[in-house]
């Protein structure tokens, strides 16, 4: 099985290599920006206008199943900026619809960036490898809605729903899930929320999540969250900014050095295409250089 995977990876690499040439390098521009620029990043901040963009080609993830057989998003633009202590990466791509709901047959728009912990030559761009972890920062449209105070509730998807009662719920109809289920007994009716699954947070503060992985199926939320983010959809384009301190002391985080070079990988999901999990578009390692402070 492993051997077949490597063969597929090798063939894929040969086939896709010409397409990847357009993404030569991402330059992280130095600017003397306040910490607030990174801590509360604004995707449409005028600062970004002057930053050069690098276009990256995206490929359908078809190395492991489940996957995509053809891409749902083919390119994305990348910009990056740092102030010597923090770095931000802006990712934008065309998406005709703002899909931010999830349900059985609905998925949310999303994107992610990935850094190696030990160096790009030491691990795989495909979710890392055993003992060679990667650090991932994941942004989702539905999380963006969460932080905007619009946690997806039942009436958002089914406006005409009527339920006689919810056991242990407090407050008034329609018993918003964010306010009516605060007792232990009420929480107990919300399985993964009750057990504090990181995917099921009623009161999310930031729309991004920091994760780590050591291969397919190992994606795990980091115990300490250092990243920030923000995403805006406007006129058919998502613009998402990820921001993080260059050095955090967290062993699960990448060490980014001013003047140094590392690699970065990208993933984009189109909710309207029902992309989720491994059904995504990706760009494997692209070199990224943090400009020296002049």
């Amino acid at each position: 099985m492993k051997r077949i995977t490597y063969v597929i990876m090798f063939v894929t690499a040969i086939l896709v290599a010409p397409r990847l040439l357009c993404a030569q390098e991402v330059r992280s521009i130095y600017q003397d920006l306040p910490k607030s620029f990174f801590e509360n990043p604004q995707p449409n901040d005028s600062v970004w206008k002057a930053v050069p963009a690098t276009m990256v080609s995206l490929l359908p993830q078809n190395i492991t199943a489940p996957g995509l057989q053809s891409p749902s998003v083919e390119t994305a633009n990348v910009k990056s900026i740092h102030n010597g202590k923090w770095m931000a990466v802006q990712l934008s791509w065309a998406d005709a619809s703002r899909d931010v709901n999830v349900d059985t047959s609905k998925a949310t728009d999303a994107c992610a960036i990935q850094f190696p912990i030990k160096g790009g030559d030491k691990t795989s761009p495909f979710m890392g490898a055993t003992d060679a972890p990667v650090a991932i920062t994941h942004w989702k449209g539905i999380w963006q809605n969460d932080v905007l105070g619009k946690y997806q509730d039942v009436p958002d998807l089914h406006p005409n729903v009527w339920v006689g009662m919810y056991l242990f719920a407090t407050g008034k109809r329609p018993f918003p899930v964010t306010t009516s289920f605060n007792t232990v007994a009420a929480r107990n009716t919300l399985g993964s929320i009750y057990v504090n699954n990181p995917i099921a947070q009623l009161h999310r503060a930031i729309p991004v999540e920091e994760l780590m992985a050591e291969g397919f199926g190992t994606l795990t939320t980091q115990p300490h969250q250092d990243a920030r983010g923000n995403g805006v959809w406007d006129k058919g384009t998502w613009t998402v900014v990820f921001a993080r301190p260059l050095s955090t002391g967290d062993k699960h985080d990448p060490k980014l050095v001013v003047g140094g070079e590392t690699v970065i990988a990208f993933a984009v999901w189109d909710g309207g295409h029902k992309d989720v999990g491994g059904r995504k578009n990706y760009a494997p390692w692209v070199p990224i250089k943090l400009e020296k402070i002049p």
Partner: peptide, 11 residues
């Protein structure tokens, strides 16, 4: 197996 739109996980 069912998807729970509120907890965002399957049950």
């Amino acid at each position: 197996t069912f998807f729970n739109m509120v907890t965002r996980t399957s049950e």
